[in-house]
Write a protein that binds this DNA or RNA. Structure first.
Length: 289
DNA sequence: ACGGGCGCCTGCCAGC
DNA sequence: TGCTGGCAGGCGCCCG
């Protein structure tokens, strides 16, 4: 699944390949792919036609492409399996092609949204009233991600101390910090030697600062690993950057030795998904042991 | 207001 | 071999 670094690679691909181009035709091939567009697929297509794409923006795992001189943007989320592809016109349709966008120029390529599981989709939204970053109104509640220069470390750390929840829940809470998925949460917690059920209020400032640093390290490592392919015609992403194969210390490593101490890693059911951790390096909090 | 939990989807694969 | 059911999980939404 696309994590934040992969989404950033997609954003760069959009900037490289579709910025400045004007839409002539939109085909919505699956209604679920535009379910976040309340007025429906026909409205989506009609309103997009004739608009010119500006440079794609990103917040967390959301992408948006402002439409020139409108205050409106195409908002996209890749969900679990979404891809944005720039393909040659006439290339065979992908099995899970959901939306096709054609342009009026002679570049010979079109933009495709392909999504097997349809957790993702595209929609049109006005920007927030205060106009911050041209952010679409429906994602006004999404916090900045830790790679954003304007991310406020101190505010995040303060919020952790005030919350009455556990640390992994907080890492996945989009209103506190965005762009951290299940995989990166487990990786950052392992690096920080923190158990996923640790109450956020129990983290000292140095510990939360260290955690934040590890979140950034994990993301940056993946960005470096995946950032080399973005200027190919194929805008990415198959969601499986080589980074995952080589560099995971926690996620998916049940029964394999901890890369730090050799203890077999464990998996626990958690929120209808899994948490992977080292039982020796990441001791459970006393209250929930 | 805040925190917890569920459901949406489909392909894969282990197990019977 | 063919079927079934569990699993993957970001995030909106609903409930208490």
């Amino acid at each position: 699944m696309p994590e934040l670094p992969e989404v950033e690679v997609v954003r760069r691909g959009l900037e490289r390949w579709v910025a400045g181009r004007t839409v002539t035709e939109v085909e919505v091939l699956h209604p679920r792919a535009v379910r976040r567009h309340p007025a429906g697929g026909e409205d989506f297509a009609a309103r997009l036609k004739g608009q010119r794409f500006e440079v794609a923006r990103r917040r967390g795992k959301y992408l948006w492409v402002p439409l020139a001189e409108t205050g409106t943007s195409v908002l996209g989320h890749l969900g679990m399996s979404g891809q944005l592809l720039v393909q040659p016109e006439g290339a065979p349709d992908e099995k899970h092609l959901r939306i096709r966008i054609r342009f009026d120029d002679s570049a010979g390529t079109e933009l495709r949204f392909v999504d097997q599981r349809t957790f993702g989709g595209l929609s049109l939204h006005d920007q927030t009233p205060d106009g911050t970053d041209g952010l679409p109104d429906v994602i006004g509640h999404i916090a900045r991600d830790p790679l954003d220069p304007a991310f406020d470390d101190a505010a995040f750390q303060s919020a952790l101390r005030l919350r009455r929840t556990t640390i992994k829940r907080a890492l996945l809470d989009q209103s506190l910090i965005s762009g951290v998925g299940n995989i990166y949460a487990d990786e950052a917690l392992w690096r920080s030697k923190l158990h996923y059920d640790r109450p956020t209020a129990s983290l000292t400032r140095p510990r939360s600062a260290e955690l934040l640093g590890h979140v950034r390290d994990v993301m940056n490592a993946a960005l470096v690993a995946g950032g080399t392919s973005f200027d190919s015609l194929y805008v990415n992403v198959n969601g499986e950057s080589g980074y995952f194969d080589r560099s995971l210390d926690a996620y998916g490593r049940e029964d394999e030795p901890c890369h730090r101490c050799g203890t077999p890693m464990r998996r626990r059911a958690w929120m209808n998904r899994s948490s992977y951790f080292c039982p020796r390096c990441q001791r459970p909090p006393r209250t929930t042991a």
